[in-house]
Deep mutational scan, measured.
Amino acid sequence: MLEGKVKWFNSEKGFGFIEVEGQDDVFVHFSAIQGEGFKTLEEGQAVSAEIVEGNRGPQAANVTKEA
């Protein structure tokens, strides 16, 4: 698991990027966000996630919002 913060997230398109210190930004799709209801993230929000290899490079999986 790694910790980072949301760089930006487009709720209409359902994707965005997470900033991780010392690494390239990581793509995040709404389907990777854990929880019930409408899955979205806010800019600057702290999150933790796993990194997996997607079709277009590294992407976030099992994204959870930090308190």
Rank of each mutant, 00 (worst) to 15 (best):
M1I: 13
M1A: 11
M1Y: 13
L2A: 09
L2D: 03
L2V: 15
L2N: 05
L2S: 07
E3K: 15
E3V: 15
E3M: 14
E3D: 10
G4E: 00
G4P: 01
G4W: 04
G4H: 02
G4M: 06
K5S: 06
K5G: 00
V6E: 03
V6T: 03
V6F: 00
V6N: 03
V6G: 02
K7I: 07
K7A: 04
K7Q: 03
K7E: 01
K7V: 05
K7D: 04
W8G: 01
W8T: 00
W8L: 00
F9W: 15
F9C: 07
F9T: 02
N10P: 03
N10H: 08
N10Y: 04
N10K: 05
S11W: 10
S11A: 13
S11I: 10
S11V: 12
S11P: 13
E12R: 12
E12G: 09
E12Q: 13
K13F: 09
K13D: 03
K13N: 06
G14N: 00
G14S: 02
G14P: 00
G14F: 03
G14I: 02
G14D: 01
F15D: 01
F15G: 01
F15R: 00
F15Q: 02
G16E: 01
G16I: 04
G16A: 03
G16Y: 03
G16F: 05
G16W: 02
F17W: 09
F17T: 02
F17H: 01
F17C: 08
I18V: 05
I18Q: 00
I18H: 00
I18M: 04
E19Q: 12
V20G: 02
V20N: 03
V20Q: 03
V20A: 06
V20I: 14
V20M: 09
E21P: 13
E21F: 12
E21Y: 12
E21S: 10
E21C: 14
G22K: 03
G22Y: 05
G22H: 05
G22M: 05
G22C: 08
Q23H: 14
Q23R: 14
Q23P: 05
Q23N: 09
Q23S: 11
Q23K: 12
D24N: 12
D24Q: 13
D24F: 11
D24S: 12
D24C: 14
D24R: 14
D25R: 04
D25C: 12
D25T: 06
D25A: 06
D25I: 07
D25S: 06
V26C: 08
V26I: 12
V26N: 00
V26S: 01
V26W: 05
F27S: 01
F27I: 01
F27K: 05
F27D: 06
V28G: 04
V28H: 04
V28L: 07
V28E: 06
H29S: 02
H29D: 07
H29A: 00
H29G: 03
H29W: 06
H29M: 03
H29K: 02
F30S: 08
F30D: 07
F30R: 09
F30M: 08
S31C: 10
S31M: 06
S31P: 07
S31V: 05
S31D: 08
S31Q: 07
A32S: 10
A32P: 06
A32T: 07
A32F: 03
A32Q: 10
I33V: 08
I33A: 03
Q34L: 14
Q34R: 09
Q34S: 11
Q34N: 14
Q34T: 12
Q34G: 08
Q34M: 13
G35T: 09
G35P: 01
G35D: 09
G35K: 03
G35W: 08
G35Q: 09
E36T: 12
E36P: 11
E36D: 12
E36N: 11
E36V: 11
E36S: 12
G37E: 06
G37V: 03
G37K: 03
G37P: 04
F38T: 06
F38W: 13
F38Q: 06
F38S: 06
F38C: 11
K39D: 04
K39I: 07
K39V: 08
K39Y: 04
K39Q: 09
K39W: 06
T40P: 03
T40H: 08
T40I: 09
T40A: 07
L41N: 01
L41P: 01
L41T: 00
L41E: 01
E42W: 13
E42L: 13
E42Y: 15
E42R: 14
E43L: 13
E43M: 14
E43I: 15
E43R: 15
E43V: 15
G44E: 03
G44R: 04
G44M: 04
G44Q: 04
Q45A: 09
Q45R: 06
Q45G: 06
A46S: 12
A46H: 14
A46N: 12
A46Y: 14
A46L: 14
A46G: 09
V47I: 08
V47E: 00
V47H: 03
V47D: 01
V47W: 00
V47F: 00
S48M: 15
S48P: 02
S48E: 07
S48R: 15
S48Q: 12
S48C: 15
A49Y: 15
A49R: 02
A49H: 09
A49W: 12
E50T: 14
E50L: 13
E50P: 02
E50I: 15
E50A: 11
E50S: 13
I51W: 06
I51H: 03
I51F: 06
V52M: 09
V52Y: 10
V52R: 10
V52A: 07
V52S: 07
E53Q: 15
E53I: 15
E53F: 14
E53K: 13
E53T: 13
G54R: 07
G54V: 05
G54L: 07
G54M: 07
N55S: 14
N55V: 14
N55M: 14
R56M: 09
R56Q: 09
R56N: 10
R56Y: 13
R56S: 09
R56E: 05
R56I: 07
G57Y: 04
G57E: 01
G57R: 08
G57H: 05
G57A: 05
P58R: 15
P58F: 11
P58K: 13
P58Y: 09
P58A: 08
Q59G: 04
Q59D: 02
Q59H: 09
Q59L: 08
Q59S: 07
Q59V: 11
A60T: 03
A60L: 05
A60E: 02
A60N: 02
A60Y: 01
A60H: 02
A61E: 08
A61L: 11
A61G: 09
A61W: 08
A61F: 10
N62R: 14
N62A: 09
N62Q: 09
N62T: 10
V63K: 01
V63P: 02
V63Q: 01
V63M: 02
V63Y: 00
V63G: 01
T64A: 09
T64V: 15
T64K: 15
T64H: 13
T64D: 06
T64P: 02
K65H: 08
K65R: 11
K65T: 11
K65E: 05
E66N: 14
E66L: 15
E66W: 11
E66V: 15
E66K: 15
E66G: 15
E66H: 15
A67I: 13
A67H: 11
A67R: 12
A67F: 12
